[in-house]
Computed example of a mutant assay.
Amino acid sequence: MTWDEINNLQLEDILQWPVKTKLIAAVILVILIGAGVWFFFISPENEKYEALHSQVADLKEQVRNKQLLAANLPAYQAQIQEMNHRFLSFLQQLPDRSQIPSLLDNVTLAGRSRGLDFNLFQPLPEVDKNFYAEIPVKISVTGTYDDLGRFAAAVAAMPRIVTLGDITLKPIAEAPNTSIGQALKPQRLQMSCVVTTYRYLADSKTGNAK
C-alpha cells in the first residue's frame, strides 16, 4: 500500500478497506492505546510502587535497628548500673566540708611522721568544677628522697581522694663537713607541690555542699 492510498482512505469506508490495511490500522490502534495506558495509568502506579518499596525497605531497616537496640538493652542497663555504682563509690571518697580540716591535718601528720619538715602550708582558693570543687593547698617540705617517696605513698593510700601536683624538687645546699657521718648522710631535698582534695557539690547551680 502506497502513501497516496493511505491518504485516500476514508474512515466511513473502513469496512471496505483491504484486510492488510485493517490489520495495520488495528496494530497502530493497539500501540496507541497501550502507550496511553502506560503513560497515564501504569507509569504513575510504578512510581508509587517504587516509592512504597523504598519506604518499606527503610522501615525494615529501622525495625532491625530497634530490635538490635532492644536485644542489647539489658547489657546497656547493666553498664549504666555499674557506672552509677562506681560514681557513688567515687563520691564516697570525697570528703564533705566538715572533714576537710581533719583531712589536711592527716596530710601534715603523714609528712611529719616520715621525717619531713614543713616550710609552707598555704591553703589556696577553692576551685568550682561543676559538680565538685577542688581544694588545693600549696606546701613546701624538706627531707630525703626516701622520706618524700614514703610521704607520697601515704597520701595516695588515704581513704579520701588526695592528689599531689605541680611537684618540683631541688637539693638543699648544706655546709660542707669532713666527718664520715656527714659524708654518708643522705642528701636532703626540698619538694614544693600542690596537695589537692575534692569536695562534692550536691547542688552545682547554687553551690550548696553536701
Rank of each mutant, 00 (worst) to 15 (best):
L88R: 10
I139S: 02
R114T: 05
L109P: 06
A152G: 03
L88I: 12
D128P: 02
A156N: 15
A173T: 11
D96F: 10
Y132R: 03
Y132I: 05
M158N: 04
A173W: 08
I100F: 02
P186K: 08
L120R: 07
I135P: 00
L184R: 15
Y145R: 09
I167L: 13
Q93P: 13
D147R: 05
I139T: 10
F151L: 03
N177A: 06
N106K: 08
E174I: 06
Y132N: 02
D117R: 12
I135K: 03
I172A: 00
V155L: 02
F151I: 00
G111E: 01
I161Y: 07
I100V: 10
L148C: 04
E174Y: 05
K138G: 01
A183C: 03
G181E: 14
V127H: 12
E174M: 07
G181P: 09
G165M: 03
L124H: 02
L164T: 07
R160L: 10
D117Y: 06
A133Y: 05
L116F: 04
G165W: 04
G111N: 05
R150H: 06
N119C: 07
A110F: 04
N84Y: 11
Q92R: 08
P186Q: 06
K185G: 03
G149V: 09
L104Y: 10
E174R: 05
I139M: 09
A154R: 02
S89D: 11
L169S: 09
I139V: 14
A152T: 05
H85Q: 10
F87R: 14
Y145K: 12
V107F: 00
L88N: 10
A133P: 08
F151Q: 01
E174V: 12
D128L: 11
N130T: 08
I180F: 05
D166M: 07
T163F: 02
T178M: 07
L109I: 14
L88M: 13
G143A: 01
L124R: 05
L120W: 04
Q99S: 07
P123K: 03
D105E: 13
Y145G: 09
Q99K: 02
T144I: 07
S113Y: 13
N106V: 09
S140L: 09
G115E: 02
D96E: 15
Q122F: 11
G115F: 03
G115V: 01
Y132S: 02
R150P: 01
T163R: 07
V127T: 09
L109Q: 07
S140C: 10
H85A: 12
I139F: 09
Q99V: 00
N177K: 11
I180D: 10
Q122M: 14
K185M: 04
P125L: 04
